[in-house]
Design a protein around this nucleic acid. Structure first.
Length: 541
DNA sequence: GCTAGTTT
DNA sequence: GTTTTGGC
DNA sequence: AAAACC
């Protein structure tokens, strides 16, 4: 069996990496901290090695104190065999396996010089030193095509994309989006994503959006908050851009709000040719994915209750798969019992089809209407934005000034065996002194729907049940519909207009006075925003 | 019961 | 050059 | 990382 690469210590994030991180901030960040460099000493003077490290750090990369923390190796040696022997020599002290060594990108030192000279991270391929393989190893190299192609097939078959449109007939053409009553406003180059329509998938630039998303996730993983925000904004600007990003449109792309100089360097060379168009890839995104640690930590972050810090910790603890996480036996979502948490974790990762979202929502409504006669409900979240499959179910229910009844609803759901876990109940009585009746309550629960035609194989599903009075219903529905960047921008926009926007209501900034918003349209009108149908709020990748 | 940090 | 970036 | 502000 192929031994897993002495998985133990791949690296421990930035701690072991002596990168003078106070310094490279304002620098030309041609490289990023995703590059952890180690230089092979052979054929280099001590001073040359030092210069290389210094240059790499100046360009924004990290200097690795030991090969075991690196993901990029530079060498002046060109003979693959010699490089391979030197690497094995270096690796013996750290007990690194051959397989581990092969996961490194080994490049000629010219890569660094050229990267500096051209002012943009150069693609690896032209500089790569392909490590030789001895015959014993080459046997196991041939096989994995079978498994990888089957995975690819599953990913590449999003026939799901336009599968079920809920009520209306299928769209005529172009974008796989559920038709909506009013057409969205025309595209504008705005700093605020809430002012322009964002489709589920970009008709012209989705591959580019996906590349940017890789970098965004890496910034998230490494808790670089503002950089992550910048990539979110850039990505949503390009997602909404109604033309293809190419050398012809480059001039206009450069003028897009949220697409600054660094992003332009990533997307297109300073010259009029376009890096992305020619190679189909952004070098840094490929670099991030080429380190096997990153996809693993990204997948941990998809688990309910795991954020950047926990993902990094899991990896450090030696976890490499979902099964490892469960086997580790530590609770993740802090409000769930360890056994419960680990038991339902696999289920919670599975996407929920639209029909099941609707089924679960009506189950909740059946109980809610008994407790709160005449209540209304709206299914929000990704479902409302037209996503073919959702990660969870968000339902906003109106109540006539009696949010305390949320516990009655939960009791009923529990008695019927629909609610399997109560994760958390937030009774958010924001500014309670000012508006005693205006409560917004959120129940974060896990539901196991009964078997039915629509749900032939019931799974545990995450459900957010939101209850609010009619006066803030519009704000709550906007707040729980998303997407994330849309929410952030509508709040920034509201600030600009002298309001404070929150899912618990729209308020005048100065006085804190509540402005009633029974419908979403009220919020848009009061903020001076054109109506944006939910299907066009897909600002995130 | 508090604070700090993390996650939703 | 400094501040803000959603706001709990 | 970008943009608005000063």
């Amino acid at each position: 069996m192929a031994p897993t690469p002495s998985p133990g210590k791949r690296r421990r994030l930035h701690e072991e990496i002596s990168g003078d991180r106070s310094q490279p901030q304002a620098q030309r960040r041609v490289l990023s901290q995703a590059v952890r460099l180690w230089v092979l000493a052979d054929k280099l003077e001590t001073s040359e090695i030092e210069t290389a490290y210094r240059l790499a750090q100046e360009l924004g990369a990290l200097r690795s104190s030991d090969i075991k923390f690196a993901n990029l190796v530079l060498t002046a040696v060109k003979a693959p065999k010699r490089v391979w022997l030197a690497l094995r020599r270096e690796a013996t002290g750290s007990n690194l396996s051959d397989e581990w060594l092969r996961s490194l990108n080994v490049l000629h030192v010219d890569w660094l010089a050229d990267t500096e000279k051209k002012g943009i991270m150069q693609a690896y391929d032209a500089y790569r030193i392909v490590l030789p393989r001895d015959t014993a190893e080459s046997a196991q190299k041939a096989s994995p095509s079978a498994s990888s192609s089957s995975i690819k097939k599953e990913v590449a078959s999003p026939s799901c994309i336009k599968k079920e449109s809920p009520s209306l007939s299928s769209p005529p053409s172009s974008t796989p989006v559920i038709p909506t009553s009013p057409p969205p406003p025309a595209w504008t180059n705005s700093e605020y994503s809430c002012q322009r329509p964002s489709p589920l998938r970009s008709a012209h630039n989705q591959p580019l959006v996906d590349e940017l998303e890789v970098i965004r996730k890496q910034r998230d993983l490494t808790s670089q908050r503002w950089s992550e925000r910048s990539y979110s904004m850039c990505l949503s600007a390009i997602k909404a851009y109604p033309r293809k990003v190419c050398s012809q449109s480059l001039k206009e792309v450069k003028s897009l709000k949220g697409v600054g100089p660094k992003m332009i360097v990533s997307i297109a060379r300073p010259a009029e040719s376009c890096q992305f168009c020619s190679s189909g890839q952004i070098v840094e995104a490929q670099q991030i994915l080429s380190d096997p640690a990153n996809p693993i930590m990204f997948s941990f972050m998809e688990l309910y209750g795991v954020g950047p810090v926990a993902a990094r910790e899991l990896y450090e603890d030696g976890c490499r798969s979902n099964a490892d996480v469960v086997a580790r036996g530590k609770s993740l979502a802090t409000h769930l019992d360890v056994a419960d948490c680990l038991g339902i974790l696999p289920d919670l990762k599975l996407p929920i089809p639209r029909a099941e979202v609707e089924e679960i929502a009506s189950l909740l409504y059946e109980e809610a209407r008994v407790v709160l006669p005449g209540c209304r409900y709206t299914i929000c979240g990704g479902y409302r934005r037209g996503k073919p499959r959702s990660n969870d179910v968000d339902v906003v229910i109106s109540h006539e000034g009696n949010g305390a009844r949320i516990h009655d609803i939960l009791d009923r759901l529990k008695r019927k065996g629909i609610m399997s876990y109560n994760v958390n109940v937030l009774t958010h009585s924001d500014e309670a002194r000012l508006d005693a009746a205006l409560h917004l309550n959120v129940a974060e629960i896990v539901v196991l729907p009964p078997r039915s035609v629509i749900v032939p194989h019931p799974k545990h599903r995450r459900v957010d049940l939101v209850m609010c009075p009619p006066q803030i219903y519009g704000a709550a529905v906007i707040g729980w519909t998303g997407a994330k960047t849309f929410e952030k921008d509508i709040r920034r926009w509201a600030k600009l207009k002298g309001y404070k926007f929150h899912s618990t209501g729209l308020r005048v900034r100065e006085t804190g006075e509540l402005v009633e918003t029974p419908t979403e349209e009220d919020v848009f009108r009061l903020l001076g925003l054109r109506w944006m149908p939910p299907e066009w709020r897909n600002t995130d990748a």
